[in-house]
């Protein structure tokens, strides 16, 4: 749902998205130690594998984004991790596109990174129960942020997309619900079993 294909967005939106994505990736790479790359890669493979699970919500099922949790565990590294995952999905499954790689990276990674920065310290310090609650907020808000950014990309491309964007935002509701519930359970689990796992991997 969050993957906008080639051929819909206008050139200024595509270029703007690519520039912001490049900035985010560059910032992450500048702080990255070389020996942290395998760790970041294996974690992003785990998030990728997790997002392939179809989670039933109401009458439909959704594939979760896990960007809130990525923001907590990877910090800024969520930018390159999402970029790599999107490139893989374009090549392997044909989801998303080449020209939209930048925009899609920003739409998906940015809310998670910001919420991870904002809520991460509180989540790491909290008791398992409270950490799970905060993680639910983090998950739901990062999905909502992605929905808003996708809608914004469509609106900035052409005003005729506005009704579509509005209807599409409704489809993000079940995703946000599922994301909140599963992220909460995952963080609760990590917080009980291996609190050190919630530490930032890099940066």
């Amino acid at each position: 749902m969050a993957h906008i294909p080639d051929g819909i967005l206008s050139a200024p939106v595509l270029i703007g998205g690519a520039v912001i994505a490049a900035g985010g990736v560059a910032m992450a790479l500048r702080r990255l130690e070389d020996r942290m790359v395998p760790r970041a890669a294996i974690l992003s493979a785990a998030f990728f594998a997790g997002s392939l699970i179809a989670v039933p919500v109401g009458p439909s099922s959704v594939h979760l984004l896990f960007t809130g949790l990525m923001g907590v565990m990877l910090g800024l590294m969520a930018f390159p991790a999402v970029l790599v995952a999107l490139l893989l999905q374009t090549v392997l499954f044909g989801f998303g596109g080449l020209t939209t790689l930048g925009v899609n990276t920003v739409n998906i990674a940015l809310p998670g990174v910001l919420l991870g920065l904002a809520l991460g310290p509180a989540i790491r310090a909290a008791s398992p129960g409270r950490a799970a609650m905060l993680a639910a907020v983090c998950g739901a808000l990062s999905v909502a942020g992605t929905g808003a950014l996708v809608a914004l990309s469509l609106w900035l491309s052409s005003p005729v997309f506005v009704p579509v964007a509005k209807i599409m935002l409704i489809t993000y509701l079940p995703l946000a619900l599922g994301e909140a519930a599963v992220t909460a359970a995952a963080v609760g689990f990590l917080s009980r079993v291996q609190p050190a796992a919630l530490r930032l991997v890099a940066t």
Partner: peptide, 26 residues
């Protein structure tokens, strides 16, 4: 799997376990 709290919780534990093992593997 169904649309209920038990399912979401179980999948959350699955993802948590996946991350713990991923960190060990890393």
């Amino acid at each position: 799997p169904g649309s209920n709290r038990h399912t979401w919780r179980s999948y959350g534990n699955l993802v948590g376990m996946l991350l713990v093992r991923a960190l060990d593997r890393a």
